[in-house]
């Protein structure tokens, strides 16, 4: 069964459509990159799938059932800038938040949850920082903590919003090897990505999005100049300067 099935999803603010009749099936066990210009609706797509904003029409199924009944299967890494990092808490605590969905009302995270959280921190190379206050972490370290939190959610499908923005090269490598590890475990990961140079290298599949679905498929099939032109509006002067042809599939 497909991990995520999006059918005919339309999201609009007032009259203005932000996502238009998006329909796609996410293949299981793949790393899927989502690319598109600013304001294309990439974050909105993730939020619509997670039920964080109302959709005008359409349905989303996670393994054949509505999201509400499948919450535990889904992990979420929001944009790093969406929270206040001055919040008085430490890295381990943030990662433990990933367990809250499993714990339920009125109960506290137990030993088992702490062990899972520590393991998640270890996986992102942040074990020594467990008790470090989040305000004292660098951008890359904050991103790793967010990833560890998603790992602690112990999900089967992950949604990550721009995890590579503003991180150092080491963190970028660490994230990539983590993504590949998740893939090896058969998990499905959808990643909003902003750097066209690395799409071909990082992702098995690519979703090109600009209000409408431009293309979805194996990267070597869909990541073409033609599709990029469609996504970015034909004005490839920007693509020409940004994109080394070798990073794009030649059609």
């Amino acid at each position: 069964m497909n991990p995520v099935k999006v059918s005919n999803v339309t999201v609009a603010y007032d009259r203005k459509p932000v996502l238009q009749e998006i329909t796609f099936d996410m293949p299981e066990g793949k790393l899927i990159g989502v690319v598109g210009p600013n304001g294309a609706g990439k974050s909105t797509l993730i939020k619509a799938i997670l039920g964080l904003i109302p959709t005008a029409s359409g349905t989303v199924d996670i393994y054949g059932k509505p999201y509400k009944s499948q919450r535990k299967l889904v992990g979420y890494v929001p944009q790093r800038g969406s929270v206040d990092w001055d919040f008085p808490t430490n890295a381990l605590d943030v990662v433990l938040m990933g367990r809250y969905g499993h714990i339920g009302w009125f109960r506290r995270p137990g030993k088992k949850d702490t062990a899972i959280a520590l393991q998640a921190l270890d996986k992102v190379g942040m074990k020594e920082y467990a008790s470090r206050q989040i305000s004292q972490l660098s951008g890359g370290q904050q991103q790793r903590v967010f990833l560890a939190r998603a790992l602690a959610q112990d999900a089967t499908v992950y949604f990550m919003d721009e995890p590579f923005v503003g991180v150092d090269a080491a963190t970028e490598k660490a994230i990539i090897s983590l993504l590949n590890e998740l893939k090896a475990q058969g998990k499905t990961v959808l990643v909003v990505h902003h750097d066209l140079q690395t799409v071909k290298e990082y992702f098995d599949w690519t979703l090109l999005l600009n209000k409408r679905k431009i293309a979805l498929g194996p990267t070597e099939e869909v990541f073409t100049i033609d599709n990029l032109q469609k996504t970015y509006g034909g004005r490839l002067s920007f693509l020409d300067t940004q994109l080394d042809p070798s990073h794009v599939v030649q059609s």
């Binding site: 009259r15 203005k16 238009q20 304001g39 294309a40 600009n210 209000k211 409408r212 004005r235």
Partner: peptide, 17 residues
């Protein structure tokens, strides 16, 4: 729909929301 996809490019139309 096409316009909303390339809003930046047609910003000169100055359409309010």
């Amino acid at each position: 729909e096409i316009y909303t996809m390339y809003e930046m490019r047609f910003a000169y139309l100055q359409l309010a929301a």
